[in-house]
């Protein structure tokens, strides 16, 4: 166990854990940020996506000792003072989630996409949203991204 400080959603958080613990389980068990999900544990499903210095990464394989100097953003950090970001609101407007379990990871990638691309194409959406969704919300994820970027909703 080691006392370490990480920057999560703009706040310095001090934790006492094994430095080899994956970030995912520190966020969930220690910090109570349970929006970030465990899906596969082997870097395939993208349910655990967070931003590391602005880039979408898989928290299931990022070790604590490797995230001490970076800025971490989780799904809980997408809203500002309780006001949802544009992409989150678009997910509500398009009624995108079903069970919702994968959606945190989807949102981290979708938010990243729309922040750097004013008008993402269908091909760019396909490429960016590598998440696995068992409920089959893909059409509504696409519609939400289009809505958030002011594009016609249909592929």
């Amino acid at each position: 166990m080691t006392v370490m400080t990480i920057n999560v959603n703009g706040v310095a958080r001090t934790v006492d854990v094994d430095p080899a613990t994956p970030l995912l389980w520190v966020l969930r068990d220690v910090l109570g940020l349970t929006g970030t999900k465990y899906g596969c544990g082997i870097e395939i499903c993208n349910a655990c996506n967070v931003w590391i210095d602005g880039s979408a990464e898989k928290a299931c394989h990022l070790l604590m000792k490797d995230v001490l100097t970076v800025k971490i953003v989780t799904v809980e950090g997408l809203a500002t003072n309780g006001v949802l970001s544009k992409i989150q609101q678009a997910f509500i407007d398009e009624q995108t989630p079903q069970c919702g379990y994968c959606q945190s990871g989807v949102l981290m990638r979708a938010a990243k996409l729309v922040s750097g691309n004013a008008k993402p194409t269908d091909a760019q959406i396909d490429s960016a949203i590598a998440n696995l969704c068992a409920c089959g919300t893909y059409p509504r994820i696409r519609a939400a991204i289009k809505r958030a970027t002011g594009q016609a909703p249909v592929k």
Binding site: T34, E76, Q95, T96, P97, Q103, S104
Partner: peptide
């Protein structure tokens, strides 16, 4: 759905 987009669900 609100809780499923802000991580609180």
């Amino acid at each position: 759905i609100r809780g499923k987009v802000d991580g609180s669900a």
